[in-house]
Design a protein around this nucleic acid. Sequence first.
RNA 1: GCCCGGAUGGCGAAAUCGGCAGACGCAGCGGACUUAAAAUCCGCAGGGAGCAAUCCCAUGGGGGUUCAAGUCCCCCUCCGGGCACCA
Length: 875
Amino acid sequence: MPKNEPSQPIAPSATDHVPRYTPAEIEPRWQAQWDAQPDLYAAEPPNSGKPKYYVLEMLPYPSGQLHMGHVRNYAIGDALARHMWMRGYNVLHPMGWDAFGLPAENAALKNNTPPRDWTLANIAAMRGQMNRLGLSYDWQREVTTCLPDYYRWNQWFFLKMYERGLAYRKKSKVNWCPQCATVLANEQVVNGCCWRHEETIVEQRELEQWFLRITKYADELLRDLDKLESWPEKVRTMQRNWIGRSEGARIDFTVVPMEEDRRGGRLDPVKLNLTETMSEPVQDGVTITVFTTRIDTIYGATSLVLAPEHPLVAEFTAQSPELGKKVRALLQEQKTAREKGDMEALEKQGVATGRSATNPFTQENIPIWVANYVLMDYGTGAVMSVPAHDGRDYEFAKKYDLELKIVVLPRQEHEGGKSEPLLPFTGEDSLLINSGEFTGLGCQEAQRVMAEYAKQHGFGEPSTTFRLKDWGISRQRYWGTPIPMIYCEKDGLVPVPEDQLPVLLPDKIEITQEGGSPLSRVPEFARVVCPKCGGVARREFDTMDTFVDSSWYFYRYADPKNSGAPFDTDTVAYWFPIDQYIGGVEHAILHLIYSRFWTKMTRDLGLVKNDEPVERLFTQGMVIRNGAKMSKSKGNVVSPDDMIARYGADSTRMYALFAAPPDRDLDWQEDGVAGVSRFLSRVYRFALQAMPRVVAGRSQPLPSTLNPLERQLMRKLHQTLRRLTQEFDGRWHFNTCIAAIMELVNDLTAQEIALLSGAVADSVLYAITRNLVLMLQAFAPYLAAELWSQMAENTPLLRAPWPAYDDELAAENVLQVPVQINGKLRTVVSVLAGSDGEHLRAMALQDPKIKTGLAGKEIIKVVLLEGKLVNFVVR
RNA sequence: GCCCGGAUGGCGAAAUCGGCAGACGCAGCGGACUUAAAAUCCGCAGGGAGCAAUCCCAUGGGGGUUCAAGUCCCCCUCCGGGCACCA
């Protein structure tokens, strides 16, 4: 190519006679055609003989507006779905709506629109946006969770779980969001605040609630994480932490009778301000059970510490208003700290109860304290305090000047005869001292032996504790699945009989700001005949957490119209597990752990055969702008509709894939979208100009020998095909795929005049253009469809087979080989592909720069990699 | 505190197995076309020195391994995310 010749004529007819690329005209035209073909993206039945591929993007909440995060998510899934179709798979690519939830009620309050109408209107609007984006969903499988034909199965599952004791009701402390006016699950509390209202502090309230026994599956949920090798390690770690299994032991400490404590002088009535007329509050033989992971340190326990809410605390303090007041203060501090989410900042404080308990291993009596750092909802709400070997206990003991006993030494110090490790010493690669018959054991071994010892002697046992709690699903809201239970004065709790499902959500309801379950204010709903006795009864007023809806929606896609069961077992067995699930990492714990639980529960009901719902999980990065997450408050939101109106759907989607690899955060820069749009214009213009030759070349065979230009372009084509094939096979760096296509197009347009004047055979031009369109389809489906139709192909574009790349065609015939002296690049020599190392060495030595560089030097070593590199190591 | 990511030109990024650092794109600069502008097209472009040939420096910082390091090893800094008195 001659350079710097401004007078060189540019393709004369180029800009004049070819219509401009106008996505605003092309895209709606194709969209109308696609809308008219409901089967276009339909999966084939299970017996189609093709391998199946289930690609799924997380279903959105129908807020009424897609945001760029959605666009990115769906652009990734759509590229994959289209690619897998071309690869010959039977692809299932569905979409639906997570349509229950509070925003609909808020909107109702604000606009006086019924939640149902508001939600369905939003769904229609968003479905329109998705269609405008050209996403390849099979809408015949659409699932809308707020419709009775879906939520009745939530109720059905609930009844099955109730039958098996997996759904139960209990009164307990629950998280209450004042803003939502409802209860939240533990998973929905983020830093002590509501996951929807990051500014709203969650309160604790005592309420009767329905729970699902997810803890029954805690062990399996943890263990099976190891099977999920194609999940991001990050997500697996987060789930592991959330489940929080810890192995240890439960040990019973016997409370010393009060009389004895008095005699021992531990109970000082004056100091503790006890009233004279107190009765014996805690009977003899009462025990306090502690949970510990370090039973090996029990000889070092110097006190027993209870959570302020521990049931025995009330009894210990019953006689002393003073003590009671202190305990309440401790509780308040703990609550405040937890609500603020910084327990760490909380100064450890406590109060001695004046009572004591006997350490079953040592028979020592140690004082019982109450402290703000012990939590009632973990373990047993009581801990043995071992200040020498636990950081928290150490801190606490220092403050109150409590006794310290060293019972573990690091191995080296043990051998060296030293006896004072740096305290607190918590290392477990250590040996026990001062521990009676257990002295000399290693910590790990001691943990096993001592727990077993406790069990044999009847004062304890090995025990495993989980951080994971049962899933509280009651919500005091209207817009959700009614919980199918009835309260009868005579019969108590009565499940709604299966044949009376669904329990329909009443349409006529006035949404008010009042707290409490809105359904309780709808008499037609509330009043019901008891299925057992026929008497007057009332329904459950609470509705289900919307995470119930999203825990199994993906099964419904496999069999969306089933009216006799949530889905057919065999159909589900064909499609599952989901081959690829794509969504944001924000669902790593909530949605994904519930879904795993639901699958295992459903498996135990005999409805599914798989243990896990999702084979591969991909979590895409966030879309940010100017370094911050897009949000209304920051005013940096970019609307997909705006982008589509300005640049077209193809450019918008393609930019979302081009600007960064999909797993990384993406900085939205509008100039970048314009750049992609310019690129697509170049493709369009080139293809249209080449079209007469392309069409002519369709029926002609490729030349038996390619001329150099043909060879060069075919090489580039196959290099590009190779890149795409490999990326789709695993790494998913679509940004480099698009860059590769751009390179190919740059090569084509650089040769535009030559190409248009017949320098390559029409059949070659056809081959290249056709493959270019196939490659573009995954990223720019509208433009691809437009060009495909102009090429008058018979096969539908989506079913055209993905072309195999040819390594030989893709190979360079002249290689540019770098030549280094002492590892520094000095020149590059050209050699023919396949020439041997000696030739390469000779070429390198001939090069004037190398000659100069080597003059007067002694060559110690030559690193010679054929076709790759020469390095002369000299002195 | 613990566990994951990440840091490369003015910007988004590429370099997949240790082998030419900066592909592709954005912004920028110069030119062509135009009465002019937009659009489009052709070129230039990491930093420094030099008329130039050319040389030196450069992938957050410091060390190491190697003929050769953005890539491997050790230490450190900063940024993002998750977990956290969990006994």
